[in-house]
């Protein structure tokens, strides 16, 4: 058995044996789905009163993902805790004594956490889609419509990448409070504000969540001049994630544990 397989098994034991894994991931699923269902139901009731332009650009798939903006926060907590728990508990010294190669340790941990996040995210995305569409009734989209399957699967990828980005940031910052204190307001406030103010919009849309969430849209919004497509946006997000992971790895190698 190779060192990598051993580390993957070990990290799986670690991740399944702490309570935070279960509550963060189930919160991500429940919040995303419940909020998506509520907003889908409200949208259906309001649809007749909406103006024609809104009806023309109506994106039922995107509406059912409305809960993701809040659900992703639970994913951030998951990503941060998976990595920073090692530091806040002192376990990191025990872990690095068992697996002294920093790269094997960090990427083994992130691979296991990312795989678990992917499974939960894809399930979340599909459940949010199907229940949301059921609420939308006559205005619903179906999985076979053009671009819909991409958006639903993309929703899973988006939430996974949010979690992995958080793991990279936590690997750099080590402290769970500091990591959450930066990531939470960033994704919940700063990014949204930058994206909605016209002066900063051009910068804001290259931020990881703005670029990545482009894949959730099936019908582009009115007057959309975004310079990248759904996969291009996801690519930009992947670059952010790669940068965060590289930063985490470099610091882990350099620092004393």
């Amino acid at each position: 058995m190779t060192a990598v397989t051993q580390v993957l098994r070990s990290e799986w034991t670690k991740i399944r044996s702490v309570a935070s894994t279960l509550w963060t991931l189930s919160l991500a699923l429940v919040v995303t789905v419940v909020l998506g269902v509520l907003i889908s139901a409200l949208t259906r009731n309001e649809f007749d009163r909406a103006n024609p332009a809104d009806r023309l650009f109506f994106d039922p798939t995107y509406v059912s993902f409305a809960g993701m903006s809040l659900g992703q926060l639970a994913m951030i907590v998951f990503g941060v805790l998976v990595v920073s728990n090692e530091y806040s508990t002192g376990m990191i010294r025990t872990s690095l004594a068992a697996v002294p190669r920093r790269g094997t340790f960090l990427f083994g941990k992130i691979a296991v956490a990312a795989a678990l996040a992917l499974v939960v995210s894809v399930v979340t995305s599909f459940v949010a889609f199907f229940l949301g569409q059921a609420m939308l009734g006559p205005y619903r989209a179906s999985l076979g419509d053009p671009g819909v399957l991409r958006a639903v699967f993309g929703g899973g990828l988006y939430m996974t990448l949010i979690a992995v980005f958080s793991m990279g940031i936590a690997a750099m910052l080590r402290s769970p409070m500091l990591s959450l204190g930066i990531l939470m307001p960033f994704f919940f406030l700063i990014s949204t504000v930058l994206g909605s103010v016209s002066a900063t919009k051009k910068v804001g849309r290259f931020l990881p969540d703005q670029a990545g969430s482009r894949i959730l849209q099936v019908v582009p919004s009115f007057g959309d001049d975004t310079p990248y497509g759904p996969w291009g946006g996801l690519g930009i997000m992947v670059l952010w994630v790669a940068a965060a992971l590289a930063g985490g790895y470099v610091l882990l190698r350099r620092r004393d544990a």
């Binding site: 051993q6 070990s10 990290e11 010294r93 025990t94 068992a98």
Partner: peptide, 20 residues
């Protein structure tokens, strides 16, 4: 230097697995 939320058994198990 132990994760307090993990049981003694799981703590030792993850260390054992990491070293075969």
């Amino acid at each position: 230097d132990v994760h307090g939320g993990r049981s003694a058994f799981n703590h030792l198990l993850c260390l054992a697995q990491s070293n075969g």
